[in-house]
Amino acid sequence: MGLILEEEYIDYFTSQRSAFQEKLLNEAVNVRDKIHDILLIGNIDLLNNAHKLVMYVLSGELKALDEFAQKEGISWASQDLTLAFKLEWVQAIRRTVWNFLQRYDLEREGESYRNFYELEEKVNDRIDQFLNGFFLSYSDYKDQLIESQRKIVEELSVPIIPVTSTVGVVPLIREINLSRANIIEEKILNEIERLRIQTLIMDFSGITSVEKGVLSHLMKMIDETKMMGCECVITGLGPKIVMEITKLGIQIHSQAKTKGSLQQALEDYLVSSI
């Protein structure tokens, strides 16, 4: 595509942005109903990102296209979003781009038809370049995430620290996502049975962040410890987690006792166990 023609395409697609998005949503049937959820969960604006992709493709900004593909791959992988949705979305963008290129040509009475083969090669190659960059970035980030999770799991190989014959402490640290919460849940329940723990102190002060849905999962785990005859005490709740618990409507006092700090809980329970 020549520079003048590229500028004409960019102007045309910019002026037709609303119509383009409407056509795109009709093309991506399965993704259409998930757009709001993806924005809410992963802060990924699919429609705005589609516009960016089209602009990079039409302008031939290949370096920016590669950087955008890498960023998208990391965003998608970090939120654990389905790859099938991304593939459907990009292929819908491809079909919609060609639909509007045809409209552009028809409005100009086939004026750009002689450039079709060159245009076809460049547009499709650039979209494929984005897809290749996206999948490589997604895969690399996932590998790094898996390795990071593996190291964390190794650090938590024995999550309960016995402080007396009946009292144990679980220091929760770093980021907790659903995958890690499931591992912690399994290990804690097994250790309660093995060590015959009657009082479990869960310290939240070392948590740096909590993935959406994890707090509800942790509250379920507290219920499970109660079913095993183990009293749960929670310490170190910070403002962010407290507000999230309140927002979720979780009645934490009906499920566990709370203490301001791990030190306070240890003083109370070590004295009472002597």
Rank of each mutant, 00 (worst) to 15 (best):
L248P: 13
D33Q: 13
I274C: 08
I274M: 14
L195I: 14
S216C: 06
S209A: 09
E27D: 14
G2P: 03
I252M: 11
V233K: 12
S216Q: 09
L83W: 00
K63M: 09
R17H: 08
W76K: 01
E111D: 08
T14W: 00
R94S: 02
E118G: 03
A64N: 15
I44M: 01
L156W: 11
Y12M: 00
H217N: 04
E147A: 12
E147K: 11
V163N: 08
S75W: 10
R126H: 02
S15D: 10
I38W: 02
L119V: 13
L156N: 12
E109Q: 09
V123L: 05
V31N: 05
K212C: 07
G2A: 01
S209T: 11
E7H: 06
G206Q: 04
L195C: 10
R103F: 07
V90D: 00
K71E: 15
D80E: 14
L262K: 15
K122E: 11
V54I: 10
W98L: 06
E67S: 10
K220N: 09
L87E: 06
V153K: 11
E193M: 13
T235D: 07
M1V: 12
L237N: 07
Q255F: 06
K247Y: 12
V163A: 09
I192L: 13
N115K: 04
N132K: 06
L172C: 05
A92Y: 01
K187V: 04
I241P: 04
S59Q: 01
F130W: 01
I183N: 03
I222R: 07
Q91L: 05
S205R: 08
I274V: 08
L39S: 15
D140H: 04
F116P: 03
G133W: 00
V214Y: 01
M219V: 04
V233M: 07
I41C: 08
E191Q: 13
E72Q: 15
S272I: 13
I173G: 02
M243C: 12
S272W: 04
L178D: 09
D37P: 12
V54H: 03
E175F: 14
K86I: 00
Q129K: 14
E67Q: 10
S59R: 00
N26P: 06
F85V: 05
I184N: 08
E147Q: 10
N99F: 02
N132I: 03
S254H: 11
V167I: 11
Y269F: 08
L65W: 05
Q251Y: 07
G249I: 01
T246F: 05
S78V: 10
E6L: 05
E154N: 10
S15L: 07
D33S: 15
K34N: 14
H51F: 15
A77F: 00
I207L: 10
L156E: 11
